[in-house]
Write a protein that binds this DNA or RNA. Sequence first.
DNA 1: TTGACATATCGGAAAAAACCGATATATATT
DNA 2: AATATATATCGGTTTTTTCCGATATGTCAA
Lengths: 99, 99
Amino acid sequence: MDQVEIFKALSNKTRLQILGWLKNPEESFPEQGTYGYADGVCVGQIQVKTGLTQSTVSEYLSSLQRAGLVTSTRKGQWTYYKRNEEAFTALSQIIQSEI
Amino acid sequence: MDQVEIFKALSNKTRLQILGWLKNPEESFPEQGTYGYADGVCVGQIQVKTGLTQSTVSEYLSSLQRAGLVTSTRKGQWTYYKRNEEAFTALSQIIQSEI
DNA sequence: TTGACATATCGGAAAAAACCGATATATATT
DNA sequence: AATATATATCGGTTTTTTCCGATATGTCAA
């Protein structure tokens, strides 16, 4: 668990927004509808909501994943990303005890 | 409280080390001795311990202060920096509830 | 008031991050 | 096999960060 990498991933407004949206995918991405949210939300829907390009958002999601803050699941041609809540709990505790 | 600014301040190994040292100034900076640690630790001692230049460390401490993670007190020709524990408590809670 | 010391600020070179468009890859459909 | 769609990766430009040396400022002591 590389703390610097985690904080770098969190040092960007758009990436913080994405994490916020993934807290309530039903609210933030109602268009996903039928498939459900068990695996999170697919890249394309996140991309539209950010207003940034597909490549940028794909890289942002990778960086969040490298930091351990989200996990990804490939299903067919889609990749779904969802929050890794344990990572946030752990980070919260690290800030209280270690840093 | 600008979250991006806080995380940027935490996105650097040296700045994280400084914050760690300031958790236990008596242990980390025994050379300060006589003056005590009520106001924290002065820039020069932190600078020596980092191995970086005076200007770099001064800027690092400013950025930690802008983020609200430390406070500074001028005493004579010295500036003492100490942790702002409330900020860490607040950040820990923000990570659990907001982010 | 001069000199010594501590810290802050300024200007800049090198490295990293923030994006983008183009292209590659993987899967699904026909 | 060919086409369409979703995502990842690559190469590049611009902006930001990382650090430095030089200089300015602020305080103390002689």
